[in-house]
């Protein structure tokens, strides 16, 4: 049986580390769905869960970073699947049909950072952000939002 590292390395451009010792696999945004499909196919849906989606605005590089923290239950280990998308057009494929647990994280990231998850029908502004900011079209966690 192949290990996590083998499966993820196939699609990774490079690896990094988030402290303490959490391995990061940097992938291309178009491979995101493939990664999760591969994880379910290889390890089964009961062996891991999607713990957190962290979006970070990086205006200096004109990019946005998305980290998917995936927790593998038998090993008790968290790995990070990291991808960068263009800041001027922040769109990425939704994985909600593969992993329904992405629902909360995707909706939150859309509302706060304005990253559009293509294929997620539940995205809506103003769940979290107050009405006045929604009317101005502001995503508060962007560094230039002025909030």
């Amino acid at each position: 049986m192949s290990t996590k590292a083998e499966v993820l390395s196939k699609l990774a451009i490079r690896t990094e580390v988030v402290k303490p010792k959490r391995i990061v696999f940097v992938i291309r945004p178009e491979d995101l769905r493939k990664v999760f499909e591969e994880l379910i196919k290889t390890f089964g849906p009961e062996s891991f869960y999607l713990s957190t989606i962290v979006g970070v605005d990086l205006p200096a590089e004109n990019k946005m970073r998305l980290d998917y923290y995936v927790h593998f239950i038998p090993e008790g280990e968290t790995v990070v699947i990291r991808t960068f998308i263009d800041r001027s057009n922040p769109v990425i494929d939704s994985i909600i049909d593969i992993v329904p647990g992405a629902l909360a994280g995707e909706c939150e990231t859309f509302d706060l950072l304005g990253i559009v998850f293509r294929g997620n029908p539940y995205l809506k502004r103003g769940f979290f952000v107050p009405v006045d900011l929604v009317q101005k079209g502001i995503h508060p966690l962007r560094k230039d939002s002025g909030v």
Binding site: E46, Y49, G101, L103
Partner: peptide, 11 residues
């Protein structure tokens, strides 16, 4: 079911 727990990220 266990599979619903992991797919929906319940903790």
């Amino acid at each position: 079911k266990p599979v619903d727990v992991t797919l929906h990220s319940l903790v």
